[in-house]
Simulated assay, not measured.
Amino acid sequence: MSEWWREKPTRPIPVEGGLRARSQRGDIARMWWSRRFLDVLESLGMGGRLERGKRYARAGQVLSLSLSTSIAVAQVQGSRPRPYRVRIGVKAFTSADWAEVEQALAGQALFLAKLLAGDMPQDIEAVFADVGLRLFPDNFQELSMDCSCPDWEVPCKHLAAACYLLAESFDADPFQILAWRGRGRQELLDNLRALRDRASAAEPDDDGEPLSALLDTFWGSATAPSSMPPAPIATTAPDALLDELDPLPVTMRGRPLAEWLRPAYRAMASEEESP
């Protein structure tokens, strides 16, 4: 009777059209967040066993990989005709947890701007830590793995291959990490925009009142006659017109004609003002 764990290792069945890791040399995972995911797995003592799956990931032995809330599922072709089913599970955050996280993210302008631009802020883990959460699972209470292959080690090479491709999917879309924890991209961004808009509407003016409270009265107060002081009435000297004219080349008794006309202009103005 043969014992499978003592048998000579066999080669995996080659796959056409499988999911192949983009990185064919060196490290897999380029962005800080996907690298952080692999670092966490290595910190749990999986580092040596993860390397076993790198060849599978680069050879395209992973047939499919899908991610949803709290679980990633893959099919990996090994040495047997039937592909193995792989699952990588993580504990999803509750709605109350996410409400706290979103409130904290919306309160930091730089984080909010980067997320709305589709980027993962470098220090986002600190935001989760401030509300008592860990973005990346760092213990076996929050992370679970299983494979339908007969290998008892975790991770086996099939699980490891799926982990590497999962890290590369995080490279392409960092929001998948958040979706794995229970908050999809669109829902997160919609909630952050709503929090930002509410905060902007509640910003006080110089007198301490929210701007939204002034919208109903802004235009009315600007047009109400009683709210504006009366405009001052401009007064002009009656003979000012003579100063606007070029000097007349006419003199009477040695005086310019304009000087003889001034008393007449002033007299006429006095008669119009008298009751």
Score class of each variant (00 low, 15 high):
A213D: 10
R266G: 01
L41W: 11
T10D: 13
L135P: 02
M31S: 12
L65I: 13
L261A: 02
A224R: 12
R58V: 12
R85M: 05
E142C: 00
M145E: 03
Q176F: 07
A21N: 08
A57G: 12
P275H: 14
T251F: 14
L166E: 09
L38V: 15
T217C: 01
A240Q: 10
P204T: 07
D123W: 01
G132V: 04
G45D: 03
G118Q: 09
P155M: 00
W180K: 04
V90W: 12
S148E: 13
G107R: 11
N139I: 02
A117Y: 01
T217E: 11
M46E: 11
W180I: 05
R183G: 03
A264Y: 09
M268N: 04
R25A: 14
S2C: 00
L257A: 09
C156Y: 00
T251L: 09
A267F: 11
A234L: 10
S270N: 06
L38Q: 07
V15T: 14
D243Y: 02
S270H: 03
L257E: 02
P174R: 07
Q186I: 12
G47Q: 11
G78Q: 04
E272R: 15
R134T: 10
I88W: 08
A237P: 01
S34V: 06
T69W: 02
R181V: 06
K54S: 13
S144I: 02
R85W: 09
I88P: 06
L166N: 08
L50K: 04
L67S: 13
R30N: 12
R35T: 13
E16W: 04
D119N: 05
L143I: 11
S79H: 13
Q186C: 03
L188R: 13
L116K: 10
G60Q: 05
A237Q: 08
F218K: 02
S34A: 15
N191C: 07
D119C: 01
A179M: 10
F175I: 06
L211E: 03
A202H: 01
L215M: 03
C149N: 13
L116N: 07
D207Q: 13
P263M: 02
G18R: 06
D130T: 09
I177F: 09
S144G: 09
Q24P: 09
